[in-house]
């Protein structure tokens, strides 16, 4: 059976207070996307496997397709739209994604960035293995992950080879 009960929620999304009336069954990802036009969280599956909808809920990473909008009433949500600097400049992590060609169609990217930012902030040792393990709840069907792993390691300050065809001078700057 379904319910059409609605209630009002107030949520801080990417630093802004947002109020909305949602049905009890509305998924957080749908509220963020449909009511607020937040394009960071994407839907790539119905089962919590693909990670494209990953956001931060009160500082903790969560797949927003696995959360009801009513659950976050009074809380704080951060989407990938909050990652860039206020003037629109890419963050170091985002810049590393661009430098290392860590995105193609860009559909999984917001989710990848959320998890990568969380990993980098966690203090965990960044290795090829730890990055791959951290990304295991995400699916990308374009990149084969190789460049995503490189970009995250570069963002952690590690030396990684520049993309194929880069000029040596550019590589040093990177």
């Amino acid at each position: 059976m379904t319910t059409n009960d609605t209630r009002e929620i107030t949520v801080t999304v990417d630093g802004r207070r947002e109020t909305g009336v949602v049905s009890d069954r509305t998924l957080l990802v749908h509220w963020l996307r449909d009511a607020l036009d937040k394009r960071g969280p994407k839907i790539g599956c119905d089962t919590g496997n693909c990670g494209a909808c990953t956001v931060r809920w009160n500082g903790t990473l969560v797949k927003s397709c696995m959360v009801l909008a009513v659950q976050v009433d009074g809380d704080e949500i951060e989407t990938a739209a909050s990652l860039a600097e206020e003037d629109g400049t890419l963050s170091r992590l985002q810049q590393c994604f661009a430098d290392h060609h860590a995105l193609q169609c860009g559909y999984c990217t917001s989710g990848m960035l959320m998890t990568a930012a969380d990993l980098l902030a966690s203090g965990e040792e960044i290795t090829e293995h730890s990055v791959r393990r951290a990304l295991k709840g995400h699916v990308c069907r374009c990149t084969g992950y190789h460049n995503i792993v490189k970009a995250i390691r570069a963002a952690a300050g590690q030396e990684v080879p520049p993309p194929h065809g880069s000029e040596p001078r550019e590589a040093e700057v990177r």
Binding site: K38, G40, L83, L90, D99, H101, L103, T109, S166, E167
Partner: peptide, 15 residues
């Protein structure tokens, strides 16, 4: 050349 991609900025910024 490995020119940086024009598509990236909007996709990285969830735009």
């Amino acid at each position: 050349k490995a020119m940086p991609r024009k598509e990236d900025a909007r996709l990285l910024k969830a735009q």
